[in-house]
Amino acid sequence: MDDAGARVGPAVHGVVETEVDESIALLHPDSSQVYVLNATAADVWRLSDGELTLDGVVAALAVAYGATPESIRAEVAATVGRLRDDGLLMPAGG
């Protein structure tokens, strides 16, 4: 799936978040499951506010990491996919 033009996020209503060092911990409102994002995934989460597209998130992170968009695109897309699959981010077009 390539939803490069779709907006990423926002968070599903009711997801609770808190920072623990460089990680972000998320509490799913329905399952009470806790997810702890590593530093990279936490950066993706912070940018997933429903305003940026996937390409926008990739571009912002590429600048932050001093990397090329091509080199990080697959990992960012996979992270967004997991966050959507876990019900933490709204689905693409949702």
Binding site: V16, T18, V20, D21, E22, S23, I24, A25, L27, S32, V34, V36, L37, N38
Partner: peptide, 23 residues
């Protein structure tokens, strides 16, 4: 420390009673 939070939460007996406060 983020991993430690996961270790604690996974082994909680009763967080489900007050999930947000426990979190």
């Amino acid at each position: 420390r983020g991993e430690a939070m996961t270790w604690l939460f996974q082994r909680s007996f009763n967080h489900y009673k007050h999930p947000t406060e426990s979190f």
